[in-house]
Structure formats: structure tokens, C-alpha cells
Nucleic acid binder design. Structure first.
Lengths: 344, 344
DNA sequence: ATTAGCACTCAAAAACTCAGAGTGCTAACG
DNA sequence: CGTTAGCACTCTGAGTTTTTGAGTGCTAAT
């Protein structure tokens, strides 16, 4: 049905995309023959472009304007980039590395810095989601008595992530009982993932023998409360960057976008699904059906913080994004973060 | 030098301000006579307005437009509001209370929710800064061994705030030593504020007797590392709200504002100074010289989380802000938060 | 002291013009 | 037959002019 894309067609399409990425203006046949050294006349280019339009790769906003690549065209373009991946310049690489180092060792700090980094090196928005707590490996639990009715529960995972929660209790528990409870739990839960820990706790709560030991019952109940919420943290930086993009100069569009990002949950859903596949993934425009991200694209990569606990990070920008530049940045950052968090 | 403000002048000024707050358009003499039931003709009003302009309370953007209140006028207006403070409607109050409850007990959660709350009830931006850690009262310290070279230090304050830090160490320390170290420190630091703790630790590190006890020396060093960074947390919500304001429809202005808020440090400086005075404070336009907040105002109030550890919360919006509505919101929220955090 | 009346001002909106970039088609060319 | 020059046609955006209407300031009357 659809005509096959000729080699020349491909080159011209590429030229259109690259020009458009730079200027954000519809590009015409003339411009292309000038900037890209194709030994062709504008008229020929016009014919080809007309074909490309037929194939659904270009559109023109109106009869006498240049042409704009469609999502489909970007998809094609991105795929060809992904095959022939460029490397980062040594300079960029160093900068990224240096800034990551600066952040210290605390996982949360590293991830936040990564997000800033992605945003500033790409000049779009950087986003990082911390791995779900559930995938972390349990290390230790502590109960700290703050006052007669308030206990602070602290949950430490092997990778240094800490989750804490303030618990209100009805009847006072002695500090030494708290310590015993913690010991008991720590013994029982050693080496499980937090997800497994939760299951285990629930199972244990049901079991016969616990029913008669009120202290242990309390211990289980408390720790279950502590672990209950597993809200993935999300770091979104550089929102101001996208104000720079001419396609969002319109205030109404801006507003919509900002509103969309205010509820982080939608963003989370979107990123969650890229967790399934490994490596760099790209969502172009309407390909990500969740968010009606008109004119927005997303470049993500997974990263590892342990054996197989994964998070996702990436860059969000206009569909008209410098993919060639952004992809290596995301890729490299993901690998670097993996190394920083996982290693030692 | 300056003529005194007549009672009628005051009423008219108020009318201008209130109209302008609603419409964001320069208001003319005609409009005023219609909307506010003053038994005066436009011509009279014009005369009065002319006087007000003389006194520096109004300006007109150009000869044949209506008039706009100056910062000075807002100041006057706000002061009069502050004197005759209205109360919140019961409905609003309930809503605020309900949402605060929802947030649970964790201080960080409460503050974050408060910020959201301020933003959504005021329809401007909500901002809350958490009290400096330094002002909190020390409660307990723990060292958790993660691997041979990594220790997680956890610092708990009396109010349930937790600060943790990943430390890298050169030589392994046995878990039981860590416990002993913690016990020693907890004994020594009981009841001090975090600020005092820090001083004490530094002093102790210098002291003679410690030099010979390598374990204690290590303990002090580690805990000093833990406590070193005291970055006040800041919760800023509802940035999208201010996109709604017509005065920022212009993309360039928007950008500037967002950039300004991206560096939270300037905002922090600004809020820090309102920590000095108690209760509701208002900064109008250029009155806050730090940020060149053109056209922005800030309504803040201090809140307490303990005896005398204070934080600041407030609302940031356009100078043309519904002060009458916002002030009680900020006031009430601050009091409520105080009660929630301090009480128990 | 207030107000009606009136001439005057000015910005924003609407209407208009025009140049330029771009297209599509046709006919010529190698 | 693919490529290209030429040309008529289209449409936008920028710049100009016109129009409108809200608003002022002044003066004279009440």
C-alpha cells in the first residue's frame, strides 16, 4: 500500500527534521537545498516532500508554508539515531561525572542531583524516579520512643535508603520492649525484599501462635503500619527550561503543561511502564497515551541500584527535541547512576 | 507637606483597590460610581482620584486609562485590613482542618500538605519552610552498619523529625562498638538542641581526654559529620496557579519568575527575615528587596513546633492579591499547624 | 462643594495593505 | 524518464491606518 521510503527521501526527511529541531519553523524546499549540501534543486526537493507528505511523514500547517515532521517521522528518525548511536563528547561526560560525584553518597541526594543534571545538560526537564521501596532489600528496623504515645519507626534498606514513620499508639510501650520487638523482627526479616517483608508480616499476623503473644502481635502491627505506604519518590527539575521553548510561548499551553506535571501521579504511571524494558526508550508525542502530552516527548532509561531493583530516569521536552544530543546524555547518566549506587 | 487622607478619599481608594484586585484592569471613575454605592458623580470621583494620584497612591498607565493602585496604596489598604481582621467562614476553616488531619503525623508530611493547602485555598502559591533543624531538640542518635565501609547515621529529634546520612569510613567498626558509641553520645547530648549539640561535639573533639580514646574520638567525628548540613527544607506548591494571573500572561515575565523560584535559596532568605517578627506579616512588591519581585507580594506567618522553634509559612501571589481572603487563611493555617505539631 | 457637559487623548481592536516565502503545475531539458 | 526552470497562485505575518470607546481634565452651571 504505502510506497517504500527511498534513500533520497530519507535524507531529505532527516534534513527537514534537523532544520525544524533547530528553528521550530516550518521548513521549505529552498532552505533545505541551501543548508544541507544535497545536489538537488528546490523543485526536486518539493516533489520528494510531496511524496513524504503522502506517506504521512510531513504536514504543512497551511498551503503556502513549509513543512513540519509528524510524530511518525520523528519515530523513524529516532530509530535511525538509536542504531547509529553517537557517544558523548569527553567534556560533557566529565561534567556529568563531576557533578554526580559532588552529590555525595546518599541515594536520595544522588538522584536529585541526577535530575538537575539531566535538566541542565539537556536544557529540557530532568526527571528521576526513585526505585520503589518494595524492591529494596530489608536491612534493619528500629523503634524510637518519642513520648508516651508516639513512636518513630525507622526502616533501613541495604542500599542506605531510609523510610520513617511516626506512629501513634494507645498504650505505652517500654523502651526495652521496643528493642526486643525490633530484634525479633530483624531476625525474622533478614534478607527479604521490602515487598516480601510486607507479605510476611501480614501472614505472620494471621498465624496462630502470635495471637497469644501480645507483644509480638504489637510488633507486627507496628511494622506493618510502617511499611504500608510505598510512595515512589519523583524528582522533577528544570521546569523553567521548557518555558524557553517557542512552541509553548502561548500562556494557555503552558498552563496546561504545568497543571499536568503538578499531579505527579500521571507522570509516574507513564514512567512506570518504561521500567519494563531495559535501556533507552523513547516516547514521542501521542505515543504516550496516558498524558495527553501534545507536542511532548520523553526519553528514558532504566538504571539499577542493586541486583535487580530498577528505577527510571529521563528527559522530558518538546517533540521537537535534540534527540541526537539527549539520548546519549540519558544513556550515560543512567549508567553512571547505576554504577554509583550499586557499586560499593 | 502631604495632604491628609480624607475619609471619602479612603473609601474611594478602597473601591479602586478592590475593583482592581478583581479585574486586573485599570479602573475609571465611572466604574466606581456604579459598582460601589457612593452617592457621588463620576466627576467628583475624578477629582478625588486626582488628589490620590498627587499623594502617590494611584497611577495611571497613560493619560486616558483608568488608575492603578501603587504599592503604597496596597500598604495602606492592607494595614486597615489587618486592624479589622475578618474571620474565615466556618466552611473554609473546616476544609483546612480536615485536610490537615489527613496528612497524618509525620512533620514533613504535615508541612507539605500545608503548602498544598495554602496554594489551593488561596489559589496562589503556597510556601512553607520547615524549621531549621538546629532549633530542634536532640532525642537520639543511631548508627546502622550497612556494609564494611558504610554506616548509616540517623538523627532523631524530639518532634519526630529525622535526618539521616550515609557515611563512608576507612576502617571497619564492629556493630557492638557502634551501639556503644551511640549510647555514649545519647547520654551526653540529651536535651540539647541540635545547634548546641554541634557546638558540644566540636568542643568535645578538642578536649584532652578524648584524644586517647580512639573509639570515642571516632564517635564524635561521625556524629559531627552527620549533623553538619543543616539545609532548611522548603515546600513550594501551586506554581501553576500563578500562570492563571493575567499580569503574568506574558511569557517573558513568567520565565523570570520561575527562574527566580528555581533557586530556592533567595526565597529562603526572604522568608528567614519574617521569622524575626511574630504573627502575620506582609511584604508588598518592592518592599522585599531581595528578590526583585516586581508585582509580587508575600503574606507570611510564623508557626511553632515546640517551645520556641519556629518556621514560616505563607502565600506568594501578585501584588494585586485578595488580601482580605488570604490573610485569614495564612493566619489560621499557621495556628493550626502549630497546634498539630506542638500539641500532643 | 458638586456635577453636567464637552473637548481631547490614547490604547486596543479592527480593517487593510503588502511583501515574501512557499507551493503545485507545466513545459523544457539532458 | 527523472530533473529542473519558470510561473501563477496562496497564504501568513508584519506593518499601517482607521475606528472605537473608555477615560480624563477643565469649565461653567447648580
Amino acid at each position: 500500500m504505502e510506497e517504500q521510503l527511498s534513500d533520497r527521501g530519507k535524507r531529505i526527511l532527516e534534513a527537514v527534521i534537523e532544520d525544524y529541531i533547530q528553528t521550530a519553523e516550518p521548513v521549505g524546499s529552498r532552505t533545505i537545498t541551501r543548508s544541507h549540501a544535497l545536489a538537488l534543486s528546490p523543485a526536486t526537493v518539493r516533489n520528494v516532500m510531496s511524496d513524504l507528505e503522502e506517506m504521512g511523514l510531513l504536514t504543512s500547517p497551511h498551503t503556502s508554508a513549509g513543512r513540519i515532521p509528524t510524530d511518525k517521522a520523528y519515530r523513524l528518525y529516532v530509530n535511525s539515531i538509536l542504531e547509529a548511536r553517537q557517544n558523548l563528547t569527553a567534556g560533557k561526560r566529565d561534567e556529568i561525572r563531576r557533578r554526580c560525584r559532588m552529590a555525595g553518597k546518599d541515594p536520595a541526594e544522588v538522584l536529585k542531583e541526577a535530575s538537575r543534571l539531566l535538566s541542565s545538560t539537556s536544557s529540557y526537564m530532568g526527571v528521576v524516579i526513585a526505585p520503589r521501596m518494595a524492591a529494596n532489600v530489608f536491612h534493619q528496623m528500629e523503634f524510637v520512643k518519642l513520648s508516651s504515645h508516639r513512636i518513630l519507626a525507622i526502616l533501613v534498606s541495604q542500599n542506605g535508603t531510609v523510610q520513617n514513620r511516626l506512629l501513634e499508639i494507645d498504650e505505652e510501650i517500654a523502651q526495652e520492649d521496643l528493642v526486643r520487638m525490633a530484634n525479633y523482627l530483624n531476625g525474622m526479616l533478614q534478607g527479604l525484599t521490602i515487598g516480601q517483608v510486607r507479605e510476611r508480616l501480614l501472614a505472620e499476623l494471621q498465624s496462630e501462635k502470635v495471637q497469644y503473644d501480645s507483644l509480638m502481635k504489637k510488633a507486627l502491627a507496628l511494622s506493618e503500619q510502617t511499611i504500608r505506604t510505598d510512595s515512589a519518590e519523583i524528582f522533577l527539575e528544570g521546569q523553567a527550561n521548557i518555558l524557553e521553548q517557542p512552541e509553548f510561548a502561548d500562556a494557555a499551553k503552558m498552563r496546561e503543561i504545568f497543571r499536568a506535571f503538578e499531579k505527579k501521579s500521571t507522570l509516574l504511571d507513564l514512567l512506570d511502564r518504561s521500567m519494563l524494558a531495559e535501556g533507552v526508550q523513547i516516547f514521542i508525542g501521542a505515543e504516550s497515551p496516558l498524558l495527553k502530552m501534545e507536542g511532548m516527548s520523553l526519553v528514558t532509561s532504566t538504571y539499577l541500584t542493586g541486583k535487580d531493583t530498577v528505577g527510571v530516569l529521563g528527559v522530558i521536552g518538546p517533540t521537537r527535541m535534540g534527540y541526537g544530543r539527549v539520548i546519549p546524555i540519558v544513556d550515560y547518566t543512567a549508567k553512571l547512576i547505576s554504577r554509583m549506587l550499586e557499586g560499593e
